[in-house]
């Protein structure tokens, strides 16, 4: 029989992660609920997951690729920008979703116990589904433009997703904990994400920054997007060093996020 000991909470321990694993089915149910509910009473339904990056691609291609003639490392601009957008939207929407996950589920948190980490994790899972749907379009574009991806993509893609996942969840955990106390987060974040889009090589190649491009490398999404383009279009060799730096930095971000989250978790129910 299961024995639970309830004590004044100190810091987090490894058993917390074991608990999250035990509750993994709940994460699945939360994600399932959100997917079910999200497109209810909408006209085009799931197609929204496809429309958003697609329309952004069209607009960016016309203005940045067409009128402004932004360089794209010799890759056709639409597919260049789309590959960047795909990862970027996964990251940015997961980040904003996670940061709202605690406050948005206040009624649940104050009434039922489950590891709170489940909520942000479920949020990222949903965005991953969007990513997969968007990836189908990318495949279509690749066929259209006649690109055959380097087989290395299958090795590198899980790593890229892992980095994106960790970056979104690490940042999201940190922000969601702050959001519990200071609701400023929900006003600052959309603005912040918009700014972040411009310091990430989504609509332009990283090479545009010249000798300052190392500054861009501090942003983990830079490494991800660069590497994905390298593997997909064979435009340049994969910069493993850069990727390794990204991996380390998101790992630190993730740890900080989790610690901060667990510290706040103690009084969530009293503050929310």
């Amino acid at each position: 029989m299961k024995t639970t000991v309830i004590k004044p909470k100190k810091t987090f321990s490894l058993s917390d992660f074991k608990e999250v694993w035990q509750y993994r089915e709940l994460a699945y149910f939360f994600a399932w609920k959100d997917l079910k509910v999200r497109y209810k009473q909408t006209f085009v339904g799931v197609a929204w997951a496809v429309f958003q990056p697609f329309i952004a691609m069209v607009v960016f291609s016309v203005f940045f690729g067409g009128f402004l003639e932004v360089p794209s490392d010799g890759i056709p601009y639409p597919i260049f920008v789309y590959s960047g957008l795909l990862f970027w939207q996964f990251f940015s929407s997961a980040l904003s979703d996670t940061s709202a996950s605690l406050v948005g589920n206040a009624s649940l948190i104050t009434k039922v116990y489950f590891p709170r980490l489940i909520l942000p994790i479920a949020g990222v899972v949903i965005k991953f589904v969007d990513f997969l749907i968007g990836a189908v379009i990318l495949a279509g574009l690749m066929v259209y433009y006649g690109f055959i991806p380097d087989p290395i993509i299958f090795a590198v893609l899980p790593l890229l997703l892992l980095i994106t996942f960790a970056a979104a969840i690490g940042g999201g955990l940190f922000l969601s904990a702050i959001n519990v106390k200071y609701r400023d987060v929900r006003y600052v974040l959309p603005y912040f994400i918009q700014m972040l889009l411009f310091v990430t090589p989504v609509i332009y190649p990283a090479s545009i920054a010249g000798k300052w491009s190392f500054l861009l490398a501090l942003n983990p999404m830079t490494g991800v997007i660069k590497a994905s383009r390298a593997a997909l279009f064979g435009s340049a060799p994969i910069n493993w060093e850069l990727l390794f730096i990204s991996l380390i930095s998101v790992f630190v971000l993730l740890i900080v996020g989790i610690i901060f989250f667990k510290k706040t978790e103690r009084y969530f129910a009293d503050v929310v």
Binding site: P8, Y113, Y267
Partner: peptide, 16 residues
């Protein structure tokens, strides 16, 4: 008891 909020002091043991 239902672990929604932790106690400030003391201990609770739940069997089951």
């Amino acid at each position: 008891l239902s672990q929604i909020t932790p106690p400030t002091e003391g201990e609770i043991i739940l069997n089951g």
